[in-house]
């Protein structure tokens, strides 16, 4: 089960990160306030960037890093949008 090839190790690590994302998703579901959910999704976004970088290394496809960059940018935008929405129920959006 434990891989030996270096590419396999990257992919295995990516799988572990997806499992961590599922664990983090518990907070997004259970989190009593919207702020908890926002933070959980933000962490998920960062997690996604890491997973994409690991996939780029594991599958020898350097272009996948471009997708990771887009995510890094949009994650910020989503965080700002949702945080501003939670203030005064979108009145300041």
């Amino acid at each position: 089960m434990i891989p030996t090839d270096i590419n396999e190790i990257f992919l295995f690590a990516a799988a572990i990160f997806v499992l961590l994302a599922i664990a983090m998703f518990y907070r997004a579901v259970a989190g009593p306030t919207t702020q908890d959910r926002l933070l959980a999704v933000n962490v998920l976004g960062t997690n996604t960037v890491v997973i994409l970088a690991l996939l780029a290394a594991g599958l020898d496809q350097p272009w996948f890093l471009d997708i990771a960059l887009i995510y890094a940018l949009l994650n910020f935008l989503m965080a700002v949008a949702i945080s501003k929405f939670t203030v005064e129920r979108g009145g300041v959006l």
Binding site: I70, L73, L74, L77, V80, A81, K84, L93
Partner: peptide, 13 residues
């Protein structure tokens, strides 16, 4: 889409 998103970002700020 990303060029458009830049303007969205400015609008939020």
């Amino acid at each position: 889409a990303i060029i458009g998103v830049t303007v969205l970002m400015l609008a939020f700020a």
